[in-house]
Amino acid sequence: MLKIENLKVSYGGIEAVKGISFSVEQGQIVTLIGANGAGKSTTLRTVVGLVKAASGSIVYEGEELTGLPTDQIVRRGITLVPEGRRVFPDLTVLENLKIGAYTRKDDLSQDIEWVYSLFPRLKERHWQPAGTLSGGEQQMLAVGRALMSRPKLLMMDEPSLGLAPLIVQDIFSIIREINRQGVTILLIEQNANMALRIAEVGHVLETGRITLSGSGAELLSNDAVRAAYLGKSK
C-alpha cells in the first residue's frame, strides 16, 4: 500500500532522515519506535507532504507522493493525527469533526455517528469549543477528526503523549478497533511497549536510520529493544 524507499529528509542542513526504507501493507498496524530526534515525526510529515523529501521515493497505491501538496495527498486517503493533537480550539467538537471531512461532499451523518460510537464522550460534548476539552478528549477528537476523511491509511504521531495511563489504554484499544474496521495504521510512539503490542510490524529508528525491524512480538522480546526502549535491564 505504502512503500518508502531510501528516503532522505533535511532540515536546514541537518539530515533528520538518512535513507530509510520500509513498507506498509493493507490492513496492517505498523509502528516506528525510537527516541526523540530519531526522525519518526519527520518521516510521517514527509509522507503527508508537510516536509519536502531531499531524495528517495514514497509510493502509495502505485503513485509517487513526493512533490504533491498536502491537500492532494489527503484527498488520496492518507491522513495524519499530528503530535500534540492540534484540534481547532475555538471551533466546537462537531465543527472539528466536520472540518475533518473537508475533502468530502457526501453525507456525513453516518461517519459522525461512527466517531461518536468510538468516542461517546465527544457526543456528550459536541457543542463545546474544542479548547475546553481535557487532553485525552482532545486526543480522541483529533483521532475522530482524522477518521472523518475516511482515510485508507491513518498515521498517528504520539497519540499517547501526555495522557494518563488509563486513557492511553483506551486510545490503544480504539486504534485496534479502527484497524479491525479496515483502516491501515502507521503509528509512531515513545510508549514502545503499548505500540509493539498492537503492531504487526515494528521498526526501530535511531538517528535517522532503521536499525532493527521485526514483528511486534519479536521486538518486544528483543534484548536490545527491551534495554533501550522498555526500561528493562538485560
Partner: peptide, 12 residues
C-alpha cells in the same frame, strides 16, 4: 488558527 493542521484536513 493553524496552517499546518488546516493542510492536514485537505484544505488548500
Amino acid at each position: 488558527k493553524d496552517f499546518e493542521t488546516a493542510r492536514l484536513m485537505g484544505i488548500n
